[in-house]
Measured scan of single mutants.
Amino acid sequence: MATGGRRGAAAAPLLVAVAALLLGAAGHLYPGEVCPGMDIRNNLTRLHELENCSVIEGHLQILLMFKTRPEDFRDLSFPKLIMITDYLLLFRVYGLESLKDLFPNLTVIRGSRLFFNYALVIFEMVHLKELGLYNLMNITRGSVRIEKNNELCYLATIDWSRILDSVEDNYIVLNKDDNEECGDICPGTAKGKTNCPATVINGQFVERCWTHSHCQKVCPTICKSHGCTAEGLCCHSECLGNCSQPDDPTKCVACRNFYLDGRCVETCPPPYYHFQDWRCVNFSFCQDLHHKCKNSRRQGCHQYVIHNNKCIPECPSGYTMNSSNLLCTPCLGPCPKVCHLLEGEKTIDSVTSAQELRGCTVINGSLIINIRGGNNLAAELEANLGLIEEISGYLKIRRSYALVSLSFFRKLRLIRGETLEIGNYSFYALDNQNLRQLWDWSKHNLTITQGKLFFHYNPKLCLSEIHKMEEVSGTKGRQERNDIALKTNGDQASCENELLKFSYIRTSFDKI
């Protein structure tokens, strides 16, 4: 039985969820670079991206490699990797027998973001014989899940209580170790020597080791999670996991709180800001991140802002960003909400898709409305799209047979046209069989910064309504002859009103 693990408890099935942008060198404390989270699957090609990484700022997932063999891993080693800020997950990587050479110096898994409450997941690794993470000293947050690894031993010899604050939620089941077939031998045991430290858990006094050649490092209890030197002297209180010299914040392997210019500090002093819960960055760093993602459509890219001495992905609820200094300031009234469309555009074809934009005031991208039916549609669209004030790209209304009016965009005031449909149009209306009105132009103002209007096959939309939009939106004169079809717009509506004058002759039985 794995020490510190839980057996036999019912657990939810383990679901495996399925960018080499360097964020800056980590400095003297770390020998390499800070790398983003990685999802490495199918083959070993991307694994080489770990070569210079000291910190993975995010998670590391290595999974679904069915053609790899043990010899493929023999020359692979990433000794610079010290810390993973989120979680480490391995799933069905064939041929991998140990992690001792792959990650010989991995010391800390912070667990800032977890995989279903777990910071370390080893699942269905069919050839893994031992973990071998002999320098792993601290899992700051989260638990361990090690399950269905039929060859995995050296679990009962690990004292997880020396690595985690609590072992109650560890789930370590259905491994070879369960069948008591392992016969784990710690260093020196074969020669009758006791080389590794022994600890007591559940009444068992057991030597602690990761492999037959690597003991588990056990520091004096007084050192807590700070770690200790090879001689057993406690590291500085700002260290986490390990250090090369005692009581020196510049000799830590990793930091308990924050890293700044080669030393570990309790908090980031001005003019620095907390970033990702582990390091200090200056304003320029946060500003660069903001600008890199301002026009990016890459998933996970955030326009970072500053709030409460932190550089964070977005302002919290009730705050909006001051564009001059990136500071989050309290909103006066309802907060603006910028919604970034991942692929640059979004099609609204149902109430469900409209709900995804609920509360958005600025759309960074283009909207395509293609709704053919739905219950209580006008009210639903207004509830979900009615706060949109600005669209950076274009607005396209296409084959939306259920629409009679666009009044559900009740606050839309600006279409920038930074991206144009077919390279020309910022407003595009095609084949809307029941569209009769755009907006009530006596109450609604709309500016279209650039781009043209396109109207074709809107049989109940009168040309007068379209011409009014040209005047109000500032697009009059931009359109070419064929942009607004004269014969297919309003051709099934009563669009022309003329005053009919009647004269009559009164007659009676005795007068003409």
Rank of each mutant, 00 (worst) to 15 (best):
L327M: 08
C311Y: 00
L99F: 08
Y154R: 15
Y259P: 00
I158T: 13
F258S: 05
D75S: 10
T199R: 10
F258P: 00
D75P: 09
E97T: 07
T211H: 09
D277S: 12
M83D: 02
H59A: 13
C335M: 03
P330L: 09
C315T: 00
K67W: 14
N105A: 06
G37Q: 10
F205V: 10
D288A: 13
R145E: 02
Q303V: 07
N117V: 06
L102K: 00
N308S: 05
T250I: 04
I306T: 04
S323V: 14
I222N: 06
T157R: 13
Q245R: 13
F275L: 09
S77I: 10
I172E: 07
H274T: 14
N322T: 07
T250R: 02
V265D: 00
L152M: 15
C182R: 06
R41I: 06
L99A: 03
L90Y: 01
S225D: 04
H48Y: 05
I109F: 01
C328S: 01
P269I: 07
T199Y: 06
C196W: 02
K148M: 08
I163P: 00
N202I: 04
N325C: 12
D178P: 07
P104E: 01
P197C: 05
C182K: 13
W278Y: 03
E57C: 03
D101E: 08
N138I: 12
Q299D: 08
L102C: 02
S77E: 10
C315P: 00
E130K: 09
W160N: 01
I312R: 05
G333P: 02
K193A: 03
T267S: 04
T189A: 13
G95T: 02
M38S: 02
V305I: 03
V305Q: 03
T189R: 07
I201A: 14
P269Y: 00
V55Q: 04
G203E: 15
Y87I: 00
D86C: 01
T140D: 11
H302N: 11
I82L: 08
L260P: 00
V121H: 11
C293L: 03
D75H: 05
I84G: 00
S225T: 11
N202S: 12
N325T: 04
L44A: 13
I109E: 00
C182V: 03
I122K: 00
C239F: 00
L60S: 00
G58V: 00
P246C: 06
C264T: 00
M65Q: 08
E49F: 04
T68A: 12
C209K: 13
D165I: 06
C328P: 00
G192Q: 15
L76V: 05
D39N: 15
E231P: 10
P249H: 01
Y273H: 06
D169C: 04
T229M: 11
G203T: 07
D101K: 06
V206H: 10
R298A: 07
P36K: 12
V144T: 05
N242C: 08
R298I: 12
C228T: 02
N117A: 08
G142P: 00
I56G: 00
C264K: 01
R69L: 05
T68F: 08
E238Y: 05
H212R: 08
N242W: 12
V200A: 13
T107E: 04
V55T: 04
R298T: 12
G58C: 01
K129W: 07
E33H: 09
L128H: 01
L128Y: 01
L106G: 00
Q287N: 07
T68M: 10
C328H: 00
D248S: 05
M83L: 12
S161L: 12
V55Y: 04
C153P: 00
I122V: 08
I139C: 02
E97V: 11
V200N: 14
S112F: 04
L233H: 12
R256V: 10
V34Q: 04
F91I: 07
K224P: 07
H226M: 08
I146S: 02
A119R: 00
M83G: 02
G32T: 08
Q216I: 04
L81H: 00
G227Y: 13
E49L: 07
H290D: 02
Y272S: 01
T320N: 09
L155V: 14
I139L: 07
L106S: 00
L326F: 15
L89K: 01
H59D: 02
E130G: 05
V144S: 04
T140Y: 06
A254V: 04
H236S: 10
H307E: 04
G183N: 04
H307A: 03
C209D: 03
A230K: 15
M38H: 10
C264S: 01
K251L: 08
N242Y: 12
A119H: 00
P270N: 03
L326V: 06
M125S: 05
I109V: 10
D75T: 06
S143V: 07
L174C: 13
V305T: 05
C234L: 01
S284F: 03
E33P: 13
W210E: 15
L50T: 02
V93K: 00
S324D: 15
P197F: 07
L174M: 13
K100P: 02
G183P: 09
T107A: 07
Y30T: 07
N179D: 06
L233K: 11
N105P: 00
G227N: 05
V55R: 01
H127D: 12
C328A: 00
C234N: 02
Y259H: 11
K217E: 14
N149W: 01
S98W: 01
Y154L: 05
F66P: 14
I163S: 01
K224G: 10
G192M: 14
D184Y: 06
R263E: 00
R145A: 14
D248H: 02
L120M: 12
D165P: 14
E181S: 08
H59G: 11
R162L: 13
H302Y: 07
L76F: 11
T85R: 14
Y134E: 07
Y171G: 14
G262D: 01
Y304M: 05
Y273T: 06
E151M: 09
H59K: 04
G95F: 05
V305L: 04
A198H: 15
N138M: 11
E147H: 07
L327P: 01
C255A: 01
S225A: 10
Q204F: 15
N43M: 08
T85K: 05
C301L: 04
H302S: 11
D39M: 11
M83S: 03
N150G: 13
T229R: 06
K100R: 10
I185S: 06
N42E: 14
C311V: 03
V121D: 00
E151Y: 15
I56K: 01
P270M: 08
A190N: 10
L155K: 05
E33F: 01
T320E: 07
L240A: 07
R145Y: 10
Y134K: 00
L327V: 03
P271D: 01
R110D: 00
E57W: 03
L289M: 15
T329L: 09
E314P: 08
W278L: 05
I306E: 02
I185E: 04
V126T: 12
N43K: 09
E147R: 01
E33G: 12
P31A: 04
L90F: 05
L174W: 08
L136R: 01
N195H: 10
W278T: 13
